[in-house]
Structures are given as structure tokens and as C-alpha cells.
Amino acid sequence: MIVVPEEFTRCTVEREGEPGAAWLAGLPGIVEEVLGRWDHVPDGAVTHGGVGIVLPVRRRGDGAERASVLKVSFPHPGNVHEPDAFAVWGGRGAVQLHARDDGHFAMLLERARTSTLAEVGDADEVAEVAGRLSRRLAVPAPRDHPQLPCLSGQAGAWEDQLREDATELVHTMSPSTVDAAVATVRELGREQAELLVHGDLHARNILRAEREPWLAVDPKGCVGDPAYDAGTLLTSRTPALLDAPDPGKAAHRILDIFGEAAELDRVRVQRWAQLRFVQAAFWGRRHGFRVARGGPGLDVITQFADGLAELLARRA
């Protein structure tokens, strides 16, 4: 019987309420059932991310050379297409998918190391590694991709939310900065490339590995513009940017290095990043952030997001 970490239990119940508590009660049984069917046994302690647990496992009777991990996620629309993305990539720049049970939101995956790209102190290396992986993961979407979420399909909702937030929320961004984000949605968001992209490519979702130096995990599996993930990377670097002597210069350098490594148009990268910072500034005011749910810490981050969105709009 597995031991589910207390922090994961608490966060899941806080976020999902009774459905989360019911899922947690059945989680040990799910793990036991899928491991028995796939003929694997536990090989370490349970760890977790935001929405799922990860258990080191190995095939019954095999040694460490056949090591894998079992990932079981809370059933949520945002988790549906993770195995689809892994299946398309086939280990190219991401961990390999060995088996899947979509009904239980369970996957048997290649085991990578526990250290992430976020632990690397060199900001240039972080941006370059993420950019190289973005280029490798951006492959033609499968022909039956209508089952995959298309970023272009979200453009209308993005524009509506931007206008609603700009009207209802107190913020320090100029009208031209919000207008620049809306223009990006209209000009870049409504028609996008038919490419499979990660959709959440930040440094914590890139792990050290044996087969390749770095491998991506936790994809959303979206169809759209690879430059979208530049905004994901940059917003995730906010804590480091806050400590930088010149945050604006540091942000531009991250985008320059990422764009070059990913072989993407620099202006396109900049515009997506600007949009994502405007969205983040509004999201934080409505919902808080993982690193700051409220209080002075949240104020610092939202005001920083306002300022960086302004700066990126001027350069773009």
C-alpha cells in the first residue's frame, strides 16, 4: 500500500473539494490495480507534482536497468492529452511512454532523474536548453489532432478575459499595453501552425536524464505556435528576474536565447511573452500565484508583471 504525501493530500482537497477527497481515498487501489496489470512493483517512495503522484517502479523480477515511474493524475480536462503528446514524440525530447490507462489517468513512463532545469543557476543555460527542447518537440500534429486542444480555439476566450480584467481589476498597465496583448491574440492567436507543442514548458518540467541530458515531462499536448512556450518559460522565471540587477535586460536576454535555440522569429517570441505577462498580471489579482496567494508578496509579483508587460510591449 502506497503512502500518499500529506502535502499532496492537503492541496488536492483544498483545490478539488469532495471530488478530490474521494479520488484520494481510491488512489492506493488504483496504483495497486494498474501495477498488477502491468506486472510492476514499487521501487521507491511516492513523490508528487501539482496534480498527480509519481511512484518509482520496476518490472517484477527485473533490476534497476528497467526502472520506470508510474504517474497517476487527478482526473481533469487539463490532464487528458498528456499521454497523447508522449505517444507522438516517442521519446524525442521527452520521457518515453511505456503504457497508459486513460480511464485512471495513469501512465507508465521512462524514469528520469529528480533534478530539474530550474536548479541550474545559469539563466542562459536554462533558456538555451528550453529553446532546444521546444524546437525538438514542435512536430507536425497527427492527422486526427482535432482531439488535441488547439491554442487557436482559445483566442476568443483570451480576448474576452483580457477586456473583462482590464475593466474590472485595479492595475498599473497602460491601455496601450493591454491593447498590445489583445492585438497579439487577434494577429497571432486566431490562426496558428499545425504543430504539437508542450504547452507548459517551464524549467521545472524539464528533468535531467540518462538517455538524453534533458527530457520534458508534464505536457499539455496542444496544437499551435511553438513561440507560445516562450511566455511560459519567461513568466516562470519571475522569482529570478525579481532578483536581477536589471530585470528588463535579463528578460530580453532569456527571450533572445530561447528564440535563437528554438529557431523562432524573435518578434513573435516577444509578443507571446508580453501577452502571457499581461494575462499573469490579471490572473494573480484574481487567483494569486503558487508562490504567493496574497499579501505583500502577491502585490510585488503583480506589480512586477505590470511593469514587465509594459517593457515588452514597447520593445515589441
Rank of each mutant, 00 (worst) to 15 (best):
V3S: 15
L55E: 06
M107C: 14
G29T: 05
M173N: 04
L24E: 04
G90L: 04
A181T: 06
E191I: 03
L24G: 09
P75M: 10
S152Y: 00
S176K: 14
G199I: 03
T116R: 13
A316D: 08
G121C: 04
T9W: 11
A183V: 02
R59Y: 01
E159M: 10
P247Y: 05
A309G: 01
L169W: 00
C11W: 01
V4H: 07
A64F: 05
H202I: 11
G156T: 06
D299R: 02
R111Q: 14
T114L: 11
D200Y: 06
F105L: 09
P140V: 09
P83I: 07
A138W: 03
E210P: 03
L312Y: 08
F258V: 06
A261V: 13
V3Y: 01
T12I: 07
D39S: 11
C150K: 03
H198D: 10
G284C: 02
V217W: 02
V88S: 12
R286Y: 01
A180W: 01
D200T: 10
F105Y: 14
A240D: 11
R211E: 07
G199W: 01
T9Y: 03
P42S: 11
R132Y: 02
P239K: 11
Q96K: 15
L148P: 07
A67S: 15
V54W: 03
R66T: 12
L207H: 13
D229C: 08
I30R: 15
A305L: 09
F74G: 11
E65P: 05
A25I: 04
D101Q: 08
C222G: 00
L298Q: 01
A157V: 05
G49M: 12
S176R: 14
G295A: 05
G297P: 02
G44P: 11
A209M: 09
D229F: 01
